[in-house]
Write a protein that binds this DNA or RNA. Structure first.
Lengths: 214, 214
DNA sequence: GGATTAACGCGAACTTGCTCGCGTTAACCA
DNA sequence: TGGTTAACGCGAGCAAGTTCGCGTTAATCC
């Protein structure tokens, strides 16, 4: 019996594997820059990244998987603002989102992910869970505001954060125009006014809960 | 010279052509019902409609064209409410939108159209113009409200209507959950509060204009 | 360093989606 | 009613995109 060096069947995350991963995701991102999702093809990604076509299919199966992974990668380093007041937090986050989607490649990425989710159940699950986690996280901002007495106790944090994001995705996916600071400002102002008016109150009037809703 | 019966090169919109068109669009809509956009393929549409594959490609070139045409078809008969007050109009329209997207096939159709727009420039133009026209039309509701003095004079009608629609498309495309009456109610309440707070004021403070913005 | 084996490169084979040419059907008009 | 021809049905042919088998490279551990 050959004492296995590192449990045969295990993956090798380091070195070359990580390099190809980076090369491919970078290539996808750049490809989104010229031509958007329309011009995205396995062949072009292979050429741009210098990674062989067969390798791409082996690791990601299809483009859907790539764009999902890229989204998670790019969104990793986004911090929650904490200015001390909800309107301040909303403005800060809204402008952060606006700046993020100011880049056409990121807008194309969102298009790509939504398209992927529409066709591939696996991609759909990734997308859903990704945004759910993000809403839960950002919802803390609202929880703090409720604790400070800025909003009604029955305000649903996730609904508030959905409402903050919605105008951006409408702009990108439906109106199909660039995202600018004016949109960010409008979104923050609108959500703050709507939340104070009780538009995001839970139907059953349950009090706002913390992040862990397990 | 043969006196042309109906200008050679002309199309023949009646009879068989109209029938196949109806059969195909109906088949697309039904296909969206079982399996959504993922299961949509030219071959399946051909089988379900009983129209030959080559005919589909000749008339629509690709699936993108079909879903765009279907969207225009389905949305043709949507009326603007006129209850006498903006909050009333907003609630009515919001619930109409909610009812429209209560059907999973229509949600799948929107996914399909957005996916189509992401890949095909022609489909993108169709989508953009379609929603732009719709916003302009619905904006009349806001123009009336401004004239009644319910909203500031510098309110941008299209921005208000965008804000009303945004939560639905966020729910469908990003959150990927069904649309319900609670969402419709929330959207209407939110937009009304936000509009009164001046969230949709034009940056330059120009007064609200009519539908024709030339 | 040396042995083991994931991960990769390469090209051929395969599958799928799409197009083309031709004969047939049925709108449209006189 | 009959002539003209757009629109359709049909199957073969073409061009993508995708998979497979095998040899090579380079992580990983001893």
């Amino acid at each position: 019996m050959v004492t296995a060096h590192h449990a045969p069947g295990e993956t090798r995350p380091g070195g070359r594997t990580a390099r190809t991963r980076q090369a491919v995701l970078a290539a996808v991102f750049e490809e989104l820059g010229d031509g958007g999702y329309a011009a995205l093809s396995m062949e072009r990604i292979a050429q741009r990244s210098g990674i062989h076509l067969a390798t791409l299919y082996r690791r990601w199966r299809c483009i859907e998987g790539m764009v999902c992974e890229l989204l998670a990668d790019l969104s990793a380093d986004v911090l929650l603002p904490d200015t001390g007041s909800l309107p301040g937090d909303l403005r800060a986050l809204s402008h952060a989102i606006g700046a993020f989607y100011g880049d056409a490649r990121r807008r194309s990425l969102i298009e790509a992910v939504v398209s992927a989710a529409a066709r591939d159940p696996e991609a759909e699950a990734v997308l859903r869970e990704f945004f759910d986690a993000r809403l839960t996280l950002a919802g803390r901002m609202v929880v703090r505001a409720v604790e400070r007495g800025e909003l009604p106790a029955d305000t649903d944090p996730k609904e508030v954060m959905s409402a903050l994001g919605a105008p951006f995705y409408y702009r990108i996916l439906i109106a199909r125009r660039p995202v600018d600071a004016a949109l960010a400002e409008s979104a923050a102002t609108a959500v703050w006014a709507a939340a104070r008016a009780g538009a995001y109150a839970r139907p059953d009037g349950a009090p706002a809960k913390g992040a862990g809703e397990g």
